[in-house]
Design a protein around this nucleic acid. Structure first.
Length: 492
RNA sequence: GGCGCCGUACCCAAGUGGCUAAGGGGGCAGUCUGCAAAACUGUUAUGCGGCGGUUCGAACCCGCCCGGCGCCUCCA
């Protein structure tokens, strides 16, 4: 039974979709005024993992992820760049898809844009006015928070508490300082749409209410986003949506934790962020390799925890994956290789290897147990490591079919996490600086020639020459491994 | 000021009432190897920020304290 931590209740709850067998989920996407940074990558990856796991569990998932493409920040950016605001949104929607593509993130089922839902937005604002929970001031429309009794439920705060310390601009036109804009009248030159209140544009939160209700219905299962959206964005979405329909809005609220740099939140305002593009460009590996290292890194801590990013942390992730791909590679190269001569029958290795079939057989169930516990990906990843060790242990004795079964299990369940999907030959093993040099210095044909020469040198016991070749290659980032069957493997 | 989260080994990180506190990295010692590499084995927290309390029993619950972070303003 899947349990999900629900921000609304502050508890892990059994997940029971509204309609058995299906899940309707909405995740706040990006406001397209700048390039995505690692924080966006985490959010995207976390919810992709959740979606995949739900699908893996046999549920049919409708996943909606929006673009907010009208907003003050977009207008500001357009002014800065002296280009039309539509050019800003078009540019950053492109870079969004470029970055998500690099990360290997699939598109959502529906990816609606705010600008394409003006009719729904305006209709929703009208309903709120009719219901008496919103009011018009000149060409603006505000939501009246005091009319919504449960305001503050999601973010666990009271209107009175917020008043006390909030640095709210004094706006005499608002009936309560926390009232927020549903519709903003347009100044000359700003993007605008016709409405009953004159030309204007939607406030920040209303587009998500309109789009989620249009594509998923008035009540749906999961609503997600970064933890910084809890207040005010999601709180206001709930107020608007429930205010309009009188029904429950989203039933489970899922929020991912922040990416941090030196223990501080990565954010635009602090200026301590890395864009996804920067990471891919600076890191030096091919994109699928960098993407997988990022995924491993981001999923190796729980989705709700803060996660400190550093070059070293990413390298650790990369190295962990090296070991998995190395194992996959050894299974492909010569699965018939035997190495059992030196292992006696009562060696502990033999006993340990006996656990492999059981571990393979129970992997699926164990995986489900851990993922069912609020998507415990770090615990799930630990299982992969355990299985990896068991396969390696078995390989010390000799190849068995269970090794292949284990590999298939790892690759198949790895798919849920977006891991272990690359062909081994596309993985890159050595550190990037060395690798970049090596690519230019040694052609494969020359490499093969040296390996043959070394192997001949070894045969005539000319170890000096053999070592000379090994060291020369090592200097260029190529590692040689002599295998039990007499062949030599190399890794860059 | 209000609300909330977190503090587990050298580093990263699971575990939230009950067998010897997962897993990874690193270190050390072995096995294997012509030498290596890789892999495997053992080892590295009588203790989970501190002090009290509840309990037969707590890293896990309660209280206080110390330290860090977040939200309350745009933010994934």
């Amino acid at each position: 039974m899947l349990k999900i931590y629900n921000t609304l209740t502050g508890k892990k709850e059994p997940f029971e979709p509204l309609t058995a067998g299906t899940v309707k989920m909405y995740v706040c996407g990006v406001t397209v005024y700048d390039e995505c940074h690692l924080g966006h990558a985490r959010s995207a990856l976390v919810f992709e993992m959740i979606r995949r796991y739900l699908e893996h569990s046999g549920l049919s998932v409708t996943f909606v992820k929006n673009f907010t493409d009208v907003d003050d920040k977009i207008i500001n950016r357009a002014n800065e760049l002296k280009i039309p605001w539509q050019a800003v949104t078009a540019r950053y929607i492109d870079t969004y898809y470029r970055d998500m593509g690099r990360l290997g993130i699939q598109p959502a089922t529906v990816e609606p844009k705010a600008t394409e839902h003006m009719a729904e937005i305006i209709a929703l604002v009208q309903v709120l006015i009719q219901k008496g929970v919103a009011y018009q001031v000149n060409s603006d429309v505000y939501f009246q928070v005091e009319k919504y009794g449960a305001y503050g439920r999601l973010s666990k705060r009271k209107l009175d508490d917020m008043q006390a310390g909030a640095r709210v601009e004094v706006d005499e036109r608002k009936r309560h300082p926390m009232d927020f804009a549903l519709w903003k009248g347009a100044k000359p030159g700003e993007p605008s749409w016709d409405s009953p209140w004159g030309k204007g544009r939607p406030g920040w939160h209303i587009e998500c209410s309109a789009m989620s209700m249009k594509h998923l219905g008035e009540t749906f299962d999961i609503h997600g986003g970064g933890a910084d959206l809890i207040f005010p964005h999601h709180e206001n979405e709930i107020a608007q949506s429930c205010g309009a329909t009188g029904k429950e809005f989203a039933r489970y609220w899922i929020h991912n934790g922040f990416v941090q740099i030196n223990q501080e939140k990565m954010s635009k305002s602090l200026g301590n962020f890395f864009t996804i593009r920067e990471i891919f460009e600076k890191w030096g590996y091919r994109e699928p390799v960098t993407a997988e290292a990022l995924k491993y890194f981001l999923l190796s801590s729980h989705y709700r925890s803060p996660l400190n990013f550093s070059d070293q942390a990413l390298l650790e992730a990369k190295r962990a994956l090296d070991d998995f791909y190395d194992l996959f590679g050894r299974l492909e190269d010569s699965p018939s290789a035997k190495n059992s001569g030196k292992i006696s029958d009562n060696d502990p290795v033999r006993k340990a290897a006996k656990q492999l079939p059981k571990a393979v057989g129970e992997f699926g169930e164990d995986f489900r147990d851990r993922m069912d516990d609020d998507f415990n990906t770090p615990d799930a990843i630990a299982m992969f490591h355990k299985l990896q060790t068991l396969v390696n242990t078995q390989l010390r004795i000799g190849f068995s079919d269970d090794c292949i079964k284990a590999r298939d299990v790892m690759r198949s369940f790895g798919k849920v996490l977006g891991l272990f999907q690359l062909p081994v030959r596309e993985w890159q093993f050595q550190d990037r600086a060395i690798k970049l040099e090596a690519e230019h210095l040694i052609p494969d044909s020359e490499l093969e020639r040296l390996i043959v020469e070394r192997s001949e040198a070894k045969k005539r016991r000319d170890f000096a020459r053999a070592d000379e070749i090994r060291q020369a290659l090592a200097a260029q980032g190529i590692t040689l491994e002599d295998r039990p069957d007499g062949t030599t493997r190399w890794k860059r």
